[in-house]
Amino acid sequence: MILLQNLYKDYQVNGKLVPALRGIDLSIEKGEIFGVIGHSGAGKSTLIRCINLLERPTSGSVVVDGVDLTALEDRKLQEQRRQIGMIFQHFNLLSSATVAENVAFPLKLAKRPKAEIERKVSELLSLVGLEGHRNKYPAQLSGGQKQRVGIARALANDPKVLLCDEATSALDPQITNSILALLRDINRKLGITIVLITHEMHVIRSICDGVGVIDGGRIVESGKVVDVFLKPQHPTTREFVEQVADSVELRETVAHEKSSGDRIIVRITFLGEQTYRPILFQTMMETGTSFNILQGTISRMKDTPYGQLVVELDGDAQQVNSTIEALRLRGLDVEVI
Rank of each mutant, 00 (worst) to 15 (best):
N6I: 06
V13F: 10
K16G: 08
K16S: 15
V18M: 13
P19S: 08
P19F: 03
R22W: 08
R22N: 14
I24N: 09
S27I: 07
S27L: 04
I28H: 01
E29F: 11
E32H: 03
I37F: 03
I37M: 07
I37C: 03
G41T: 08
A42D: 05
G43E: 09
K44M: 06
S45E: 09
T46I: 09
T46P: 09
L47Y: 07
L53W: 10
L54E: 05
R56F: 14
G60S: 10
G60D: 11
V64T: 09
V67Q: 08
V67G: 12
L69Y: 13
L69T: 00
T70G: 06
K76V: 04
L77K: 05
R82M: 10
F88I: 03
F88D: 03
F88L: 05
A97W: 11
A97H: 13
A97S: 15
V99N: 04
V99S: 05
A100L: 07
A110W: 13
A110Q: 11
P113T: 11
A115H: 09
E116S: 14
I117A: 11
K120I: 06
V121M: 01
L124C: 01
L125H: 00
G129W: 02
G129M: 01
P138T: 01
P138L: 02
S142F: 14
G144H: 04
G144K: 02
R148T: 06
G150T: 06
A154Y: 05
L155A: 07
P159E: 06
P159T: 07
V161A: 08
E166S: 07
A170D: 10
L171S: 06
D172M: 08
P173Q: 00
Q174E: 13
N177G: 15
L182K: 05
L182A: 09
D185G: 14
L190E: 06
I192A: 08
I194V: 15
I194R: 12
V195C: 14
V195E: 07
I197P: 15
T198N: 14
H199I: 14
H199T: 11
S206R: 13
S206A: 15
G210C: 12
G210Q: 04
V211S: 05
E221V: 12
V225C: 00
V226R: 02
V228L: 02
K231P: 03
P232M: 02
Q233E: 11
T237P: 03
T237H: 00
R238V: 04
R238A: 04
V241T: 04
Q243V: 04
Q243T: 01
V244K: 02
A245R: 02
E249K: 07
E249D: 11
L250M: 10
E252A: 15
T253V: 12
V254K: 06
H256R: 13
E257M: 13
K258M: 11
S259T: 01
I265N: 03
V266F: 00
V266R: 03
T269S: 09
L271R: 14
G272T: 01
L280Y: 01
Q282F: 12
M284F: 11
T289E: 00
N292H: 14
G296E: 12
S299P: 11
S299L: 08
S299E: 12
K302I: 12
K302C: 08
G307V: 13
G307W: 05
Q308I: 15
L309T: 10
V310P: 04
D314M: 12
G315E: 08
V320F: 00
V320G: 00
S322G: 08
E325S: 15
A326R: 06
L327M: 12
R328I: 09
V334G: 00
